[in-house]
Design a protein around this nucleic acid. Sequence first.
DNA 1: TTCATTTATCGTTTTAAACTATTAATTAAT
DNA 2: ATTAATTAATAGTTTAAAACGATAAATGAA
Lengths: 325, 325
Amino acid sequence: MNTNLSIRHLRAFAEVAYCGSFTQAASRLHLTQSSLTATIKQLEQSVGLILFDRTTRRVLLTLQGEQFRPVAEKLISDFDTAIGDLQAIAGQQQGQVAIAASPSTISRLLPPVIDDYRQQYPDIAISLRDDSAGQIEQRVLDNDVDFGIGANHSGHPELNYQPVLSDRYGVVVPAAHPFMGESSIQWQQLIQEELLFLSADTGIRAQLNQFRQAGQLLLSDQKAILEVSNPAGLAALIRQGIGISVLPALAASTESFKELRFIPLIEPLMRREVCLVSRKGRSLSPAASTLLSLAREHFISMPLPPYLESITPEHPANSSTTPTA
Amino acid sequence: MNTNLSIRHLRAFAEVAYCGSFTQAASRLHLTQSSLTATIKQLEQSVGLILFDRTTRRVLLTLQGEQFRPVAEKLISDFDTAIGDLQAIAGQQQGQVAIAASPSTISRLLPPVIDDYRQQYPDIAISLRDDSAGQIEQRVLDNDVDFGIGANHSGHPELNYQPVLSDRYGVVVPAAHPFMGESSIQWQQLIQEELLFLSADTGIRAQLNQFRQAGQLLLSDQKAILEVSNPAGLAALIRQGIGISVLPALAASTESFKELRFIPLIEPLMRREVCLVSRKGRSLSPAASTLLSLAREHFISMPLPPYLESITPEHPANSSTTPTA
DNA sequence: TTCATTTATCGTTTTAAACTATTAATTAAT
DNA sequence: ATTAATTAATAGTTTAAAACGATAAATGAA
C-alpha cells in the first residue's frame, strides 16, 4: 500500500514545516538540502498532493499540508515513544519482573537480593508470587512469571533447572523434647515419634511421600497423618508439644521456628536442591536476567543458616533430589 | 534518535508475530526469508531486546514482544490511515472547499456550479461565505477560503485575479418612474434623482465613490446620502418610490429586484469585472482547483441576465474596473 | 540592475535493502 | 537411531535507494 513511505518522510515533512526552509531543515536533520528536497518530493508524489508551496524565498504549507502537520507530528511522536519504551525496557529503566517462589524462599533468601536489585533499578516493578512447589513450575510454564525458585521439581522437559542451594533435611523439635541434646538424629529414631506434615501440595511433604513410597523409611506404622498447610501453623503445633516434624533447613530457619531446635537427619543424610527454574528455549527479559544473576551471586555469598549450602555453578550437583550416603 | 528504525521494521515485526514464521511472513510481505530475518534483527538490535524466541520449528513472541505487538500494530494502522486520508483528499474522495463571494454571486451565479460539482463529488464539503468585496480578499489572504469570487478588487499584490464576468452598471427604477420607458440612461440624467446607495463596504458603493472622487460624475450637489446595507432592503426602498439606485446588473438581477426595472447606464458605459480571486504563489487543493475550473466553465456558458457577459480566458480584459467609452 | 540566498536538478558515491545459495538446527517419520 | 523435510541464520552478491556535491534557476532585497 504505502510501503514506499516511511517515518523518514514524516520527519522530513515535519522539520520543513517547522523551519519553513529546506536548507535549514536539512541542516537540522543532518542531511543535504538536495536530499531533503528529494524526500519531500517523494512524499508529495506518493500522496498525490502538494504539501508545500515554495519559492526560493519562502516555504509555506498548503492547506492540506497544514492539516497533515499535526497528524504527522503525532505519528512521529507515537513512533518514537513506542521505540523509546522498548529501549527503556532493554536498558532496565523500566519494566517488571515476576518471580514465583516458596514462602520460605521469599522470607529467608530473597529479601537481600531484592534490596540490592531495588537500589540498582528502582524503576523496575517486582512481583513475588508465594507458591508451593508444583505451582511454581506451572507458573513458569504458563509464562505468569519470569522465573521461579523452588525445590522438589518434577524435571519438566520444557523447564530449565539451575541448582543454587543444597538444603539438608532435619527434625524440628520443641525445647522440652528428648532429642534436644543430640547433634544429629537417625531416620530410624523417628519411627516412634508423632510426625507432623505440611500439606501434600507443599514441596517438603511431597518429598517425604516420595521417600516413604521408595520404602527407604518405614512410616507406614505411623498414626493417622496430621498435616498443616502452612509452616507457621506447623511450628505452633510443635511448640505445643503435639509432635515433631521433618523439614528442610531452609523452611525451619524462618521466624516461626525461632524457639524450636533443628537437628539434622543422618543415615541417610538427605538433601533437596533449591533451583532457579526458567523456561527452556525462551529468553529472559533484561530485567529478569539481571535479577536472576544477582540472586545467584547472593546465594553463593550470603550468610546461610546451618545445613543450607550454596552450590556454585562450577560444581553443579545432580539436578534431582537425591539421598546421599 | 531512532532514525534507523522505520515503519518497515514494524510491518516486518507484526507480520512475523502474526504468522509465527519467518518464511511464511516473508512470502506474505513479498520478501525473501533472509531479508526479513535481517530486518527483525535490525529492529531487535536497535531496541536492544529480543522480540522473538525462535527455533527452526517455531517462532514465539517474548514477553516484551507480546507487549509490543499491539503498540506496533496501532502505529502501522495509524500511519496507513493518515497517508490514506491524504491520498483520499488528493483523489477528491473527500475534503472540503471554502469559497468567499458576494451575496449576489452566491444567489445568482453559484447555484448551478455547486449543483454540478455536488453530483460529481458528493463527498466534498462545500462552504460558501457570504462576504462583501473587501472581506472577500481578506478571506483569501487569511487562508480562510480556498478562493473568492468578487468584483471591485483592490489589486492586492499577493492575490491573483482572474476576470470571468463583465458586469454592466445601470439604474434600478420602480415601475412608476419616468425612466421606465427608456432603453438606456445617461449618467447626467441622474443628477436630479434621489440616489440610494449600498453601504460603503459593499463593492457597488465603493465603486461609485471611486467615480465621484475622480470627478467624472458630479454627485456632490446631491442630498444627504441614503444608504442601505443590503440589496434586499435597497430594493424595498426603491419599490416604495423613495428613490432609484445605481447597481451592477448582477446585483439587480436577484429575486428582490424582480418587480423593478434595470436600465443600463451609458456615457460612459461602465462595467466592473467579477473575478476569481486566489492567493498568488499558493497552490489550490485538487478539490478547490476542480471547483474553480468548473465555475469558470459555467460562467462562460451559463444563461446570464442582460448586461452581464462572460469573459473568456482567451480574451482577458484589463483586470481592474475601467470606464469604457 | 546586481547580489545574496534558496530551491530544484543532475550526476555520482555511498549505504542499505533485497536476493541467491548454503549451513545449521529441529522435528517428524522411517 | 537415522533419515528426510522444514526452518531460521549466515555469507556473499546484486540492486535499489538514499545521501552527497556541484550547479542552475528563481526570488527578494539592496
